[in-house]
């Protein structure tokens, strides 16, 4: 994922669904990516499981939703190493975030929702 300016579209590199990413404190798996239809466009949301089990100060785990952004162009291309990417706009407007949260709340099991 690239891009720093919230108002500008950015390149979102799609995750390998089902592959595990490890870090010093735990690991996570992106289970699936979904499109959520809203009045202000289709939001791309990644759902996954995270486990913190090798941390020095606690442990935990959850199923999470990561709202990548509103789709500007789906499957816009592939990276040099062959990974597909899309062009998205981050969701910064709080009313839009609330709307997406409400949709996810009644459609997917989760413990937390994060906005990129």
């Amino acid at each position: 994922m690239n891009g720093e300016n919230a108002a500008m579209p950015y390149i979102y590199i799609h995750s390998d669904e089902g592959s595990e990413t490890t870090s010093i404190a735990g690991r996570y798996v992106i289970e699936k990516e979904s499109e959520i239809q809203t009045e202000f466009g289709a939001a791309l949301v990644a759902f996954g499981f995270a486990v913190v089990d090798t941390s020095c100060c606690g442990s935990g785990g959850c199923r999470f939703a990561q709202v990548a952004g509103i789709i500007v162009e789906r499957n816009a291309g592939t990276t040099e190493d062959g990974k597909p990417y899309s062009i998205l706009e981050r969701v910064r407007d709080e009313s839009q975030q609330r709307r997406i949260r409400n949709i996810i709340d009644v459609s997917e099991c989760h413990c937390q929702i994060n906005f990129l």
Partner: peptide
């Protein structure tokens, strides 16, 4: 939860 965590169910 509101949505069932069982992937084979996911009842709402």
């Amino acid at each position: 939860q509101r949505i069932c965590a069982n992937p084979a169910c996911n009842a709402k």
